[in-house]
């Protein structure tokens, strides 16, 4: 059920990216898809009633092994979030340049592709 909700978020982003004509809306759709993929990986590593993967002082290691959530997806999604910021920033910079050159965000009017 929770997986399905996460997938619905992905599909909303996909719908936005392929049907909208405004280029900022397309960037928003891509960002939504990225959020959904990150969330899905974290959902896969969740343990019911688990604790965060941080060792505290009065904690037995074997007990920690049995209750901690998966730390590997968290570490890799941390990387992925920061890379997503870089990619989205680049896309927005291109949007700003396109607006300065053509005076519109509408992709059906941005057709004169020349250097």
């Amino acid at each position: 059920m929770i997986y399905t909700l996460c997938f619905v978020l992905f599909l909303i982003g996909l719908y936005c990216a392929i049907t909208k004509k405004n280029i900022v809306k397309i960037v928003i759709g891509l960002t939504l898809m990225e959020y959904s993929a990150n969330l899905f990986l974290i959902l896969l590593g969740y343990r019911k009633g688990g604790v965060a993967p941080i060792v505290s002082e009065n904690m037995n290691i074997t007990e920690f092994l049995a209750t901690s959530v998966d730390p590997l997806p968290q570490a890799l999604v941390l990387t992925s979030i920061v890379i997503g910021l870089g990619v989205t920033t680049l896309a927005i910079a291109i949007c700003i340049r396109l607006y300065e050159k053509y005076g519109t965000f509408d992709i059906t009017e941005i057709r004169r592709l020349k250097g």
Partner: peptide
């Protein structure tokens, strides 16, 4: 989902992204 590091990074990234997007629109 017991991922506090990710929550902190997500807030920081979201603020920066929001500034860029508002600048663009």
């Amino acid at each position: 989902l017991m991922a506090p590091d990710l929550a902190i990074v997500q807030i920081a990234v979201e603020v920066i992204l929001l500034i860029f997007l508002i600048r663009a629109t």
